[in-house]
Design a binder for these strands. Structure first.
Length: 613
RNA sequence: GUCCCGGUAGCUCAGCUGGAUAGAGCAGCGGACUUCUAAUCCGCAGGUCGCAGGUUCGAAUCCUGCCCGGGAUGCCA
C-alpha cells in the first residue's frame, strides 16, 4: 500500500468501478468519497451514484448497485453488498480492520504522510508594524495568521520568505525624526530612548503638525470669537511651520543626509528590536532578516511609475496618475498630483520584487480585510503590467489577500482601552500569561516557580493564538480572556493538556519499566481506538487543505477533534493497565502516533507546547 | 449611490466538492475521580440556518431580490 489516505484509495477503487460499470463516462467521474458522519452506517461513503444517475439515465439506487457490482474493495474495505446502498443512493463503506492497521503504519513514518509537494517559492507579507509605534491588537492577526500560513507552506516543503512591510517611510516618519533631531539639538534626547517614549514623541509630533484647523473652521463658521480665533491662528501657524520643517527633513532623509539618516536608523532600531521581541514572544519565526520596509522600495517607485506611464497603462487624471481596471469602478492612483507616490505604488514595487527577483509563485498578503479593494486594484494592475509574472513564465503567479476581520471587545465594538486607545500587544500578552499563571498555581503548586513561569507563558500565548487562529480568518471575533483560557472547551490549553497527558503517560511507562516498541503491532478492537485511528489518518489532507485555502482554522478544528477523540480513548481504554501486553503495546503506539501528529500540528500552527501543566 | 464581508442553538463559533436526522464549545440540568494529569470524560435539553423566491432527486451551502450589521469607496497608509 503506497498511501496512508483511505479517501484516496477508496476513490481509486470507486473510479475504476464506475469506469467498468459505465464505460461511456470513463474515469473522469469524481467518486465523491468522504468520511461518514455516522459511524454506525460506515466509515466512508461515496455519493457518486446520485450525480451519475442523470448522466446515464438511470435511477440512483440502480446506479449504486451497478457500481457495487463492479467494485473491487479487496485489501481495503469489507465487501460491498445490497445493504451498502442507503437512502437515495449513498454507498457506505467499512474499512477492513487489517487495512486500517496498514494505513496507520504507513502514516507512522517521519514525515507523517506529508511528503513534499512540487516545491514553490512563497512570499508571505505579515506583521506590518510602523516605526515609532507599539505593536497593538491590530498587529496580532497580521503577525500570527501570517506566520501560521508561512509554517503551513514550509511544512509542505515549499521555500517560504516572510516579509514584514514595515511602515518606515514618508511624512509621518519624517515628523518624528524632526522631533527627535530638535530634542537632540537641545540636549534633551535620552540616551536610553525606548519604544514607549518614542511612541509618545511620535504622537506629540503628529499633534504639533496637525494644529487646530478643524477647530478653526468651526470657530470661523460660528463667528464672534476673535480672541479664540487669534489663538488658533497662532497654533496653526506654528503647526504649519512644524509641517514645513518635517517636509524639509523628509527631503534630507530621502537625499541621504547623514545626520538625518542616522536618527532615522535609531528610530528604526528602537522600534524593530522591541517589535521583534514581541514577535519572538508570540512564538513566530519573524526576525530582522524578514523586514522589508517601505524605505527599501523608495528608489524603485519612480521606475515603476515611469514604466506604467510610458507603456500607456497609467494615465493622467486631474493631475494625478491613475490606472483604470476593467471591472473595478475606482481607479488605482499611483502618483499624486503633487508628484508624491502612494501605498499602491509601493505595493506594486513590492510585487515586482517578490515575483521577479525573489521568484515567488505565490504571494500572500496577511492584511486587514478593510484593504481588500486596495489589493484587488494592486493585484489587477500588477498582472496587467506583467509585474506578477516570473521571467519566462506564461502565467502570472498567484496573488492572494489573506484578509482578516477585526478583533472586537466584549461590547462587540473594536477592541480598545476604556479611553479609546489601542491596546498594547505586550500588555495583552502579559495579561493572558498572568491569568494562565493563576491557573497553573491553582492546579500545579507542586511544580517549581521557574517551571510554573514557563508553563504560564506557553499556556497564555497558546491561548491567545489558538483563539485567533481557530476562527475563520475573514470574520470579526470577540476577544475574551475568560473564554480562551477556560478550563473547559475548544481552547489552546485543551490541546496542550492533551499532549501533556500523553507525555505524562510515557514518563510513567518509563518509570514503571514498561518498554515502548515503536513497531509493535497495532490492534484496533474498541470503537474509541478506531475513532482515534480514523482521526489520525485525516491529518495530511487537513494540512494540505489549510495551506491551499490559507485557512489555519481548519487545522485548529482538526486538532481539536483529534484531541477530543484521544480524550475519549484515554478515558475508556486503559493503556498502561491494558488487559495484556499486546494490547498495551498497541495502545502505546497509538498514543505515540497521536502525540507526534498533535505536536506536529501544534508546531505548524505555531503554538508552544509544554511537558507538564 | 456603488462595491466587499458577515447573519447558523441563550452566548461564542464550525459546517469540506450541494448529500442522510445541521454539529462543537460555553452557559443550564444530570452523571463519572481508592483507577495512566478531572484544564478530562459520558448523558439530557436547546434550531424558522436573516427573509422571500429560484435551480436540483437533494440547498445552511449555488442563483436572484430584499432586510439587518460591519467595512471600503481619487490624491493618508
Amino acid at each position: 500500500m503506497d498511501t496512508y489516505d483511505p479517501i484516496e484509495l477508496l476513490s481509486n477503487r470507486f473510479r475504476q468501478a464506475i469506469a467498468r460499470a459505465y464505460p461511456e463516462v470513463g474515469q473522469e467521474v469524481d467518486p465523491l468519497v468522504s468520511a461518514s458522519r455516522q459511524p454506525q452506517l460506515g466509515d466512508f461513503q461515496s455519493n457518486a451514484a446520485m450525480s451519475l444517475a442523470k448522466r446515464v439515465g438511470a435511477n440512483p439506487r440502480e446506479v449504486a448497485r451497478a457500481i457495487i457490482a463492479h467494485a473491487d474493495m479487496s485489501g481495503i474495505a469489507e465487501p460491498l453488498n445490497e445493504q451498502s446502498v442507503a437512502g437515495p443512493g449513498f454507498i457506505n463503506v467499512r474499512l477492513a480492520p487489517d487495512a486500517l492497521v496498514r494505513l496507520l503504519e504507513a502514516l507512522d513514518e517521519p514525515a507523517l504522510g506529508l511528503r513534499p509537494d512540487e516545491p514553490m517559492t512563497v512570499v508571505v507579507d505579515l506583521c506590518g508594524v510602523n516605526l515609532a509605534k507599539q505593536m497593538h491588537v491590530g498587529h496580532l492577526r497580521a503577525t500570527i495568521i501570517g506566520d501560521t500560513i508561512a509554517r503551513l507552506h514550509e511544512r509542505l516543503g515549499h521555500k517560504v520568505i516572510r516579509q514584514s512591510h514595515v511602515g518606515d517611510w514618508g511624512l509621518p516618519i519624517a515628523m518624528v525624526t524632526a522631533k527627535l533631531l530638535e530634542l537632540e539639538d537641545r540636549g534633551e534626547l535620552s540616551e536610553s530612548l525606548d519604544l514607549d517614549e518614542l511612541n509618545r514623541l511620535y504622537k506629540q509630533a503628529q499633534a504639533e503638525c496637525a494644529g487646530e484647523h478643524r477647530a478653526m473652521e468651526v470657530i470661523q463658521r460660528v463667528g464672534g470669537h476673535a480672541k479664540l480665533e487669534a489663538e488658533l491662528a497662532a497654533i496653526n501657524a506654528e503647526a504649519d511651520e512644524h509641517l514645513a520643517h518635517a517636509r524639509r527633513v523628509l527631503v534630507a532623509l530621502q537625499s541621504g543626509d547623514q545626520r538625518v539618516r542616522a536618527m532615522w536608523q535609531r528610530i528604526y532600531d528602537v522600534t524593530m528590536s522591541e517589535c521583534l521581541r514581541t514577535c519572538a514572544r508570540l512564538h513566530t519565526l519573524i526576525t530582522d532578516e524578514h523586514s522589508a520596509g517601505e524605505s527599501t522600495y523608495a528608489e524603485e517607485l519612480g521606475q515603476v511609475v515611469e514604466d506604467l506611464a510610458s507603456r500607456g497603462i497609467a494615465h493622467e487624471s486631474d493631475g494625478a496618475l491613475v490606472v483604470r481596471i476593467e471591472g473595478i469602478d475606482e481607479p488605482c492612483l499611483v502618483r499624486k498630483s503633487d508628484g508624491g507616490y502612494l501605498y499602491a505604488t509601493t505595493d506594486l514595487a513590492a510585487i515586482r520584487r517578490r515575483v521577479q527577483q525573489l521568484g515567488a509563485d505565490l504571494v500572500v498578503y496577511c492584511v486587514d480585510a478593510r484593504q481588500s479593494l486596495h489589493f484587488k486594484q494592486v493585484f489587477a494592475v500588477a498582472r496587467l503590467a506583467g509585474y506578477a509574472t516570473k521571467p519566462g513564465a506564461s502565467q502570472p503567479s498567484r496573488l492572494e489577500h489573506a484578509a482578516f476581520g477585526t478583533i472586537l471587545g466584549e461590547d462587540n465594538r473594536p477592541f480598545k482601552t476604556r479611553s479609546g486607545e489601542n491596546v498594547k500587544l505586550s500588555d495583552l500578552l502579559d495579561e493572558a500569561v498572568a491569568r494562565a499563571r493563576r491557573a497553573v498555581d491553582e492546579r500545579s503548586a507542586e511544580l517549581s516557580r521557574e517551571e510554573r513561569d514557563s508553563i504560564a507563558e506557553a499556556v497564555g500565548i497558546a491561548a491567545i493564538k489558538y483563539a485567533d487562529l481557530s476562527n475563520d480568518r475573514i470574520k470579526d471575533y470577540v476577544f475574551s480572556f475568560d473564554r480562551m483560557l477556560a478550563f473547559e472547551g475548544d481552547t489552546g490549553p485543551y490541546l496542550l493538556y492533551a499532549l501533556v497527558r500523553i507525555r505524562s503517560l510515557f514518563r510513567k511507562a518509563e518509570a514503571e519499566g514498561i518498554a515502548f516498541d515503536p513497531h509493535a503491532p497495532i490492534i484496533i478492537t474498541e470503537p474509541e481506538e478506531k475513532a482515534l485511528a480514523l482521526a489520525l489518518l485525516r491529518y495530511p489532507k487537513t494540512v494540505r487543505a489549510a495551506a491551499e485555502t490559507l485557512q489555519p482554522h481548519r487545522l485548529c478544528g482538526y486538532l481539536y477533534e483529534l484531541c477530543s477523540a484521544y480524550s475519549t480513548f484515554y478515558d475508556r481504554c486503559h493503556v498502561l493497565k491494558a488487559d495484556d501486553a499486546e494490547q498495551r503495546c498497541s495502545r502505546l503506539r497509538l498514543c505515540h502516533l497521536t502525540a507526534r501528529v498533535l505536536a506536529d500540528g501544534l508546531d505548524v500552527l505555531g503554538l508552544p507546547t509544554v511537558e507538564r501543566m
